[in-house]
């Protein structure tokens, strides 16, 4: 599969959607009556968190593909999915923290179960890279990383249940995702933002896949042209090779 194909078009669509989303956030969506302007971070924060969680689960599905087929390209896909989801997740966590500070006066609130479970999931997936780095044999690294990813992806929903149950009184929630109690203009802005962030994730995923598979092709070509010994030794790496 050539990951670069159609990437330019996708990148353009993504840029356009994100631009429209930001325009809607700043100029169209109404100001929240209680929280004012800062509430608008919601349009970035929630999609980032959703896409990040989706990315982790996506990585888990790709990891199943790797274990079923034994084809290391699936591991590469899974790796890039997790890697991107982590970046989105950290951005989501930071934006959530800013939102919490602005609306509740604290950088961190323990009685917001979504935020807490998100932190736990992020903590778990943060061990993905150190784990890979600690296993030298690339094949074993790929296999173990896939096992970890599948377990961790299954952990995501279970963790949410446990943390949600643990909150005796849930903070009165400003907005829920069950669109119903979102006013129309807010809902529109939210969904456009969500689509924009999803597209951004897909674009970045494909971008990194294109770069990684190009590098692999080059290595393979060099190996077939030159002898093994002529190749510079691979550095130990957490990334699949």
């Amino acid at each position: 599969m050539i990951y670069g194909r159609g990437l330019r078009g996708l990148a353009l669509v993504t840029t356009a959607t994100v631009t429209v989303a930001l325009a809607l956030v700043f100029f169209y969506a109404p100001l929240d009556a209680d929280q004012g302007f800062i509430q608008k971070i919601f349009y970035i924060h929630v999609p980032l968190a959703i896409v990040s969680l989706g990315g982790f689960v996506f990585g888990g599905v790709l990891a199943v593909g790797h274990l079923r087929t034994g084809d290391r390209r699936w591991d590469m896909r899974s790796y890039v999915a997790i890697h991107m989801a982590l970046i989105f997740g950290i951005a989501g966590l930071l934006s959530g923290s800013i939102w919490a500070k602005a609306s509740w006066g604290h950088w961190w609130v323990w009685n917001e179960p979504t935020l807490v479970s998100f932190l736990i999931v992020l903590l778990l997936f943060s061990t993905y890279q150190p784990l890979r780095f600690a296993i030298e044999d690339p094949e074993r690294q790929a296999r173990y990383a896939s096992v970890f990813t599948i377990v961790a992806a299954a952990f995501v929903p279970l963790n949410f249940i446990a943390v949600r149950l643990a909150q005796q009184y849930v903070h009165p929630r400003v907005l829920t995702l069950s669109g119903g109690n979102l006013p129309g203009s807010m809902a529109l802005t939210f969904y456009v933002s969500l689509i924009g962030i999803v597209l951004l994730y897909i674009t970045l995923w494909r971008y990194e896949m294109a770069a990684k598979s190009a590098r692999m092709h080059i290595r393979r070509l060099r190996r077939s042209l030159l002898d093994d010994e002529a190749l510079p030794a691979m550095k130990r790496s957490a990334a699949p090779s």
Partner: peptide, 12 residues
């Protein structure tokens, strides 16, 4: 690596 992976997994 053991505790690093194990602790978050065991939180629930």
């Amino acid at each position: 690596i053991g505790p690093l992976i194990g602790l978050p997994l065991l939180i629930p």
